[in-house]
Design a protein around this nucleic acid. Structure first.
Length: 212
DNA sequence: ACCTTATGCCTGTTACATCA
DNA sequence: TTGATGTAACAGGCATAAGG
């Protein structure tokens, strides 16, 4: 529907133009089409420049007082019912259409700002999550390193115990046999109960470490 | 049920005002 | 003077309700 204008839209546009021409005589008059065009490309507004007398300079900026009251009403409710629109328009000496346009633009600005804030919030959350992920990855690497050292220590002990057991058949080895402070040397205090390894599989019990 | 009309909202655009 | 920015006004599309 880019080339055919709806009849009702045309009528509305004309009505608006007539209305505006009443509010700003000499400015919009020239824009009122003499005949209704059925087929039209997207209309471009004509540039309106001030002439020597200053006429043709359309009033655009709303006063601070008008904006203040509009903001106050917008704060109460973003939507605008017909009655409220008329009331505000009468109160501010504006055309209801102007009030409707102001609310539309204000909603658009509000939405845009809200999206910006949401983006900012999500970005902050994302950044801190990435930071936390890096921290955790570093911690995992450190723990892997510590576990590797622990495994080496155990292997050395096992080798020593194997040497002893070959001369003394009755001796055996189990995790319980370790001193409670065994892990302390590897900075793994409190992990004794975390890593359960069956007694009879202690030699290959750390294979799972490779899968971390 | 379907079509027309009116109305309101949304998104994107245009043009003017203002300021650095 | 000029480019950037803010904003009033607009265009066109869509949704919905009311009436014929």
């Amino acid at each position: 529907m880019t080339t055919n204008m709806k009849p009702q839209t045309q009528t509305q546009a004309d009505k608006q133009m007539v209305l505006l021409s009443q509010y700003y005589p000499g400015i919009y008059d020239q824009l009122i089409p003499e005949q209704v065009e059925v087929v039209k490309p997207r209309r471009r507004r004509k540039k309106i420049k001030a002439d020597a007398s200053g006429c043709g300079f359309r009033k655009r900026k709303l006063s601070d007082e008008q904006v203040s009251l509009l903001e106050q009403n917008f704060g109460d409710e973003h939507k605008l019912e017909s009655e409220r629109k008329d009331r505000i328009a009468a109160e501010l000496g504006l055309d209801p259409r102007q009030v409707a346009v102001w609310f539309q633009n204000r909603r658009a600005r509000w939405k845009s700002k809200k999206l910006e804030e949401e983006y900012s919030k999500l970005k902050t959350e994302h950044d801190s999550t990435v930071l936390e992920k890096c921290r955790l990855e570093t911690e995992v690497l450190k723990l892997k390193e510590q576990l590797g050292e622990a495994q080496n220590g155990i292997n050395r002990l096992v080798e020593r115990l194997d040497g002893i057991s070959s001369t003394s058949p009755s001796s055996s080895f189990s995790m319980e046999a370790m001193e409670p402070t065994f892990f302390d040397g590897f900075g793994m205090e409190g992990l004794e109960n975390v890593f359960f390894v069956p007694e009879n599989s202690y030699i290959n019990g750390f294979d799972w470490l490779n899968n971390i």
